[in-house]
Design a protein around this nucleic acid. Structure first.
Length: 110
DNA sequence: AATGTGACATACC
DNA sequence: TGGTATGCCACAT
């Protein structure tokens, strides 16, 4: 009952990210009440490959909108392609107009 | 049980 | 202006 794994909470939030939107590790961490555990969010993504349920990890980027995690995908271009197919524009490994496409769980999930 | 780890974030030089 | 250093904390081994 009690407390689920921190990772599960992260996965749950990530799955809620709408197509065409992105968020940051720090935002997710804050939403989970662990503002200082942003690294854990990235760590969770690393383990997301093990999860049975698909986790759109490509929608999670760092605070600068940089696709820092793309190296963890099968192909480095995979993450960018996925994002572009959702309507985002990746420029120089960075999400263009990151602020505009930013999805903040703290506001969206009240 | 103890140590190592990291797809971040921030501060400092 | 950019690289380096440090904090942070739950998971993996």
């Amino acid at each position: 009952m009690p407390k689920q794994d921190f990772f599960e909470d992260v996965y749950e939030v990530v799955r809620l990210i709408p197509s065409g939107k992105v968020t940051s590790y720090g935002a997710i961490a804050r939403y989970l009440g662990a503002a200082r555990s942003s690294r854990l969010v990235g760590y969770a993504m690393n383990a997301s490959h093990n999860q049975a349920t698909y986790v759109p990890a490509h929608r999670v980027v760092n605070r600068n909108g940089l696709l820092t995690g793309k190296h963890h995908f099968s192909d480095e271009t995979r993450m960018q392609i996925l994002l572009e197919s959702e309507g985002l524009i990746i420029e120089n490994e960075q999400v263009k107009d990151f602020k505009i496409h930013f999805w903040d769980p703290n506001e969206a999930l009240i």
